[in-house]
Nucleic acid binder design. Structure first.
Length: 424
RNA sequence: GUGGGUAUAGCUCAGCUGGUUAGAGCGCCAGGUUGUGGCCCUGGAGGUCGCCGGUUCGAAUCCGGUUACUCACCCCA
């Protein structure tokens, strides 16, 4: 069984679906190029410590979701569970920060997390993300919010919503955290199991619990907005001002928190109504402390990540995901023997001109070959009969209207031209 | 890690309260047209009924276990 089953939570992407990926990848590159982001490809695996330090020891990812292994040199390596820490590592290692700032980079590739699969969640999944490093300008926060929206629009996706919040910085967050704990502690016995846990480990998480009982208690909880330091407050209001100026619709959600330790100030999430329980198609935020945490100079930064499978799922749900499947320019029908050789010669000639040419490899009947040509959606069929070949000709049949004409096989350039023009 | 649902042909699925050769549609192959696709007709190939065990004269069907898939929780893209 294991021999013929792919590992849990992984996917094969083949004909019928891969075309959508190619289309999407092209759109991603277009949008990134318009915003001036360059691609950076990092390894699929990194030193385990990078993620432990970058994402945070107390996060679910680091605690129970990483694919970690020892290599033959007894180094602990981990298949990347996300793209930001590796990109920041590369930024520091390659000294990109020594050049002109900000540095704007994007990545696109597989990520790995050991979780139970469900709709829109896989153990190997693909993220497209980008990061702008070296500037604290709120306008870059806004770019990180707007760029994925541009991508969604370019794909034709609708029904998505932006939620945004600020979670403060090392100056103001600790005090707010204290306030939260102070508020929730008296209600501790009424909280759900996981919230009791959160209270000790990550009080901010209490805010996005969906359990009813917790929701009620939460109604009276202190809001982050009243505890921001002047700098964070100013930053957030500027982000909102830019969004307003650009006419971007968003929803303030002071309950929104993120799962990684590195976020500061702005955090946001884009959800799509088309998806199931895992309805976030993109999320991100600012992380002004991460570069320094990973051994670089203090460098403010902001970024986001989009779940590519989820985006495709949403598009498919809205029937926006249509794979364009063009057929061959020509299918050469032959009768075996001599005619097959001539068919092969002609096919190779035309293929060298960039035309898609098919022919039968199974020794099938004429009828079966015609049928095959039809199934493939071939624009034309070239019939290589012995009589015509002896005169240096072949029959060219237009599969749309059934019209046939003789073509001169002495002038293949001309034939290529005819087929090429019809393919437009 | 926890809970629910599902598992029959390449695909989508029938198969009622256990009964003998397990079906349909689509797809595939061949023929009807010894050199012509789509429509139609005829025929054919293709199934350890996920796996193991139990109940029974008899199990695709009932029971238990197991694996896989799937949805949801936790968490996340």
């Amino acid at each position: 069984m294991t021999l013929t089953n792919r590992p849990r939570g992984t996917n094969d992407v083949g004909p019928g679906e891969i075309e959508l990926w190619h289309q999407l990848e092209e759109k991603i590159r277009q949008v990134c190029s318009a915003f001036g982001y360059k691609e950076l490809r990092t390894p699929i695996f990194e030193h385990t410590e990078l993620f432990q330090r970058g994402i945070g020891e107390a996060t679910d990812i680091v605690e129970k979701e990483m694919y970690t292994f020892m290599d033959r040199g007894q180094r602990s390596l981990t298949l990347r569970p996300e793209g930001t820490a590796p990109l920041v590592r590369a930024f520091v290692e390659n000294r990109y920060g020594e050049g002109a700032l900000p540095v704007k980079l994007y990545y696109l590739g597989p990520m790995f997390r050991y979780e139970r699969p469900q709709a829109g969640r896989y153990r190997q999944f693909t993220q497209f993300g980008l990061e702008a490093l070296g500037s604290a300008d709120p306008l870059l926060d806004v770019e990180a919010i707007v760029l994925p929206l541009e991508l969604y629009k370019a794909c034709g996706l609708s029904g998505f919503q932006v939620e945004i919040n600020t979670i403060g910085c090392p100056v103001c967050r600790p005090a707010y955290r204290e306030e939260l704990v102070k508020y929730f502690e008296p209600h501790a016995d009424k909280l759900c199991g996981s919230c009791k846990n959160r209270l000790e480990r990550n009080p901010l998480r209490l805010l996005d619990c969906k359990v009813e009982g917790c929701q009620e208690i939460m109604a009276g909880a202190p809001s982050i907005t009243k505890h921001l330091c002047p700098e964070c407050e100013e930053h957030f209001s500027q982000v909102l001002a830019y969004l307003d100026a650009l006419g971007i619709e968003y929803k303030l959600n002071h309950r929104l928190v993120r799962g990684f330790d590195y976020y500061t100030k702005t955090v946001f999430e884009v959800t799509c109504s088309e998806l199931g329980a895992q309805n976030a198609v993109g999320a991100g935020g600012r992380y002004d402390g991460l570069v320094e945490e990973l051994g670089g100079k203090p460098t403010p930064a902001v970024g986001f990540a989009v779940g590519v499978e989820r985006l495709l799922l949403a598009l498919r749900g809205q029937e926006k995901a249509k794979a364009e499947t063009a057929g061959p320019d020509a299918y050469i029908v032959h009768f075996g023997g001599e005619t097959k050789q001539r068919a092969a010669q002609t096919a190779f000639f035309l293929r060298r001109r960039g035309l898609w040419v098919e022919l039968d490899y199974l020794g099938r009947s004429i009828k079966a070959q015609m049928k095959a040509a039809d199934r493939l959606g071939s624009r034309h069929v070239l019939i290589f009969g012995e009589d015509e070949l002896s005169r240096g000709e072949a029959v060219l049949r237009d599969m749309k209207d059934g019209q046939e004409q003789k073509v001169d096989l002495q002038d293949l350039e001309q034939l290529a031209k005819i087929l090429g023009e019809c393919g437009q």
